[in-house]
Amino acid sequence: MVGVKWPIAAVLDVVMILVFAAIGRASHHEASPVLDACGTAWPFLAGAAAGWVLVLAVRREPPIALVASWPVWLLTVGVGMAVRHVTGRGVAVSFVIVATLFLGLFMMGWRAIALLLARRRTATA
């Protein structure tokens, strides 16, 4: 692991998804950005939860490390888009691309930063 406890990792994933939704809603100048961001975020939060459950069931460890967390990222996007489609929300190709790239960068990015910091700590210890 990279020195991050699983509750912190889960919260970081939730925060990354909320940031994604908030930035997206703000770019559309919504009247109620907080409520609209929650409406955008919940399908992706459900996808992240599915990813966490899958990784925990298969690997018997939380998806903190980079190699263990890619299913969380992919299910966040996949389930999120499926739920949006089923509920009549937009799943335009451009939105799928932006969501995939943003969530990948941010959800995998915090893990990469944590890994680099952990390696740096052990190298200087």
Rank of each mutant, 00 (worst) to 15 (best):
A68I: 00
L116D: 14
A123G: 10
M107C: 08
L103I: 13
A46F: 12
A31Y: 10
I97S: 12
A37C: 04
F102W: 14
T87Y: 09
G39E: 10
R111W: 04
L56N: 11
A21F: 04
I113Y: 11
F95W: 10
V15S: 07
E61H: 13
R89Y: 13
W6E: 04
L117A: 12
L45V: 10
R121A: 15
A31M: 11
V96M: 15
A50Y: 05
G90A: 13
L66I: 13
H28D: 11
I17C: 07
W42T: 01
G104H: 03
L45F: 05
W70K: 06
L116A: 15
G47C: 08
A9C: 02
A49R: 04
L66Y: 02
H28N: 09
A118K: 11
L56E: 13
V86A: 15
A9M: 01
S94P: 00
G24F: 07
V96T: 12
G24M: 06
L75K: 03
L116S: 12
V53F: 11
L105N: 05
E30M: 05
V93Q: 10
A41T: 04
L54W: 08
G78W: 09
E61I: 01
A46K: 07
A114N: 11
T124N: 06
G104C: 06
T87G: 06
I23E: 08
L75A: 03
D36M: 08
I8A: 14
S94D: 15
A50D: 05
A68H: 13
F106I: 01
I17V: 14
P62S: 15
D36C: 03
I113M: 12
T76N: 07
V55D: 08
A65K: 12
A48D: 04
V14I: 11
W70S: 10
V15L: 14
R120M: 11
W110L: 02
E30Y: 02
I113P: 00
L54G: 07
G80Y: 09
A22V: 06
R119K: 14
V19N: 06
D36S: 15
I23R: 00
V53A: 14
V58T: 14
A10H: 00
V77L: 14
H85V: 09
T40N: 03
A21P: 00
I97C: 13
L45S: 05
A10V: 05
R25D: 10
R121Y: 08
V83W: 09
A46Q: 07
G80R: 06
V2Q: 12
